[in-house]
């Protein structure tokens, strides 16, 4: 039964047709398709493909955003169905993500957020201008495995180190993996501030998060 919906639902996601994606998802559920199978078998692969096409510049940010919105709309219904069955959706892990204090640039961070979600991570997006303590408090609240921080400006990237230093000061550095990215950030900077990883783009961020969680 899952096969019946694979192509139309994948297409609806890829084309960013949220209403169609919701309709197809409802139909699939009414025919008894397992919601977890829909997520893992259709939504995640469809969004992964969209992400790859975006990375290759075959499609652009609006298509990525619309696909993300369509998948989110379908996921909401599927998670309700999962909860109704008394089950719980399995995520690859929870990532608390945000742009650091003083920095209001968030396009890159939003792309990372979309791709991480598409690959099955539970992403808690804190938005922009996020103080160090909030990264930590939210990571604790959501039992996150990873704190991911973005910074575009040279003058704002020290805030990434502030969070790492605060984690150390609070004796919580080992509780989370910390990764960094953004326009002014590179591998040398990540190493210098004691981050656990650096990703140059959104696709690399997905690979990095998977690697860090496997190592856990």
């Amino acid at each position: 039964m899952l096969e019946k919906y694979r192509e139309p639902l994948s297409n609806a996601i890829a084309e960013g047709e949220a209403e169609q994606a919701v309709e197809l998802t409802r139909q699939a559920l009414s025919e008894g398709v397992d919601p977890l199978d829909i997520i893992q078998g259709i939504l995640v692969p469809a969004l992964t493909q969209v992400g790859e096409r975006f990375q290759a510049f075959e499609i652009f940010l609006p298509e990525l955003m619309m696909a993300g919105d369509a998948a989110a709309a379908a996921t909401t219904i599927l998670e309700e169905a999962i909860a109704a069955k008394g089950a719980q959706r399995q995520h690859l892990g929870t990532i608390v993500l945000g742009t650091v204090a003083g920095d209001i640039h968030d396009i890159g961070k939003n792309i990372v957020s979309t791709l991480l979600r598409s690959h099955g991570f539970n992403v808690v997006d804190l938005g922009r201008d996020v103080p160090a303590i909030r990264f930590i408090e939210e990571a604790e609240k959501h039992h996150a495995a990873i704190i991911a921080m973005s910074a575009l400006m040279t003058t704002t990237r020290p805030a990434q180190r502030d969070t790492i230093n605060l984690l150390k000061e609070l004796g919580k550095r080992d509780a989370f993996k910390v990764i960094v990215g953004g326009g002014c950030v590179n591998a040398e900077w990540a190493q210098a501030i004691g981050a656990d990883g650096y990703a140059e783009n959104a696709a690399e961020a997905v690979v990095l998060c998977k690697r860090l969680l496997q190592a856990n």
Partner: peptide, 12 residues
């Protein structure tokens, strides 16, 4: 303006 960003491709 970001090329490939919110506006999309070159035209947008």
């Amino acid at each position: 303006p970001l090329i490939g960003g919110i506006g999309g491709g070159a035209e947008g």
